[in-house]
Simulated assay, not measured.
Amino acid sequence: MWAIPIESSFTGSLASKMSEHFNVLREHTMSESELFYFTSSHLDDISIEEPLKASYRAKALLRILNGILLLTDNYVLAFDVENLVFMNEGERWKNRHIDRSDRDLEYKELENPFQAEESKLVKYKRIPEDDKNKRNYIVDFFDYAYKSELVKEVLILFSLSKIDTLFILINTYKIIETIEYDLGFIDKTAKTEKIGLFSEEFVKAYEFFEKGKFGHYSNSEYGSGLFSRHGVSDKKKYEDKKGNPLPPVSFNDIDTNVRTLIYEWINYKLMVEKGYRYPPVKRESKTRSLTDEDFKFELEDLI
């Protein structure tokens, strides 16, 4: 079994959650301190001779988990996939430092991190649908990423957008398009008919992107500069009909609304499938504009 060291102020609480697709182990040291490890049945088919493959798959799974955590706050799990631990029948080996890379392999693992056979997933006692106290959005959202390729992609894109500010417009645009496709919003008639089925929070967040200047701003180098989805082009001026430059779109507003959009989208899917959802997230408005530091964590811990 592969295990990856993780750190966070709330790691202990994660150790009590139960998911078929991930687990957080707690280890007590001789000095009475606690260490925590991320494990998953989706890592179990990787042999001890393939630490690089295990590190890439573990990183993809942790990207999904961090994407979920980021929907409600800015706390994430710091992890080091170059410091893997392999455990087998009570024994433990610490693998040597991984000092090479394989981009093709990393791509394959990021595309498909869920590789455990259904029969080998750890089965927990089913929580009664009416037992609200034992439900956990982290577990439900992660399980949904396993069921839905689009949910998995959106969570990975979102977590990547928080690592570097350069990703925020490109990834946010892709997230919106993916959610629109999943909900059938590509058809304008269907969108008009369906929009009333969603929470007020979802509608407000969606209208921010649909009716605001986000698409124009993010596609225009004249508007968003280095962050633009496209290069320089005279056809993509960022100005109004009179030729006047438009004001930039707030990165803080983009961040707040994309979190809400993703969270409420998955909530909607849960309601359709399981008949329950989680309460909306209350967000405090910030008076200052976000800077690079708001979107960066310790890169060496997250990559």
Rank of each mutant, 00 (worst) to 15 (best):
A3Y: 01
I4H: 00
P5K: 07
T11P: 07
A15D: 05
M18L: 14
H21D: 15
E27Q: 12
T29A: 08
F36D: 07
D44R: 09
P51N: 09
R57D: 05
A58K: 03
A58G: 15
L61I: 07
L84D: 07
V85F: 01
G90S: 03
W93R: 11
K94G: 07
R96G: 14
S101F: 09
K108E: 13
P113E: 03
A116S: 14
K125D: 10
R126W: 00
I127Q: 00
Y137M: 15
F142H: 00
F142Y: 13
A145S: 15
K147G: 06
S148D: 14
E149D: 11
K152W: 05
E153T: 14
E153K: 15
F158W: 10
S159F: 02
S161A: 12
I163A: 09
L166K: 15
N171S: 05
L183W: 02
T189L: 12
K191P: 04
E200A: 09
F202G: 02
V203S: 04
K211N: 13
E221N: 15
G231K: 07
V232S: 11
K237M: 14
Y238F: 13
N244A: 11
L246M: 10
I254M: 04
N257H: 11
R259T: 01
I262K: 06
W265C: 06
W265P: 03
I266W: 02
M271A: 10
V272D: 05
K274V: 03
K282S: 14
T291W: 03
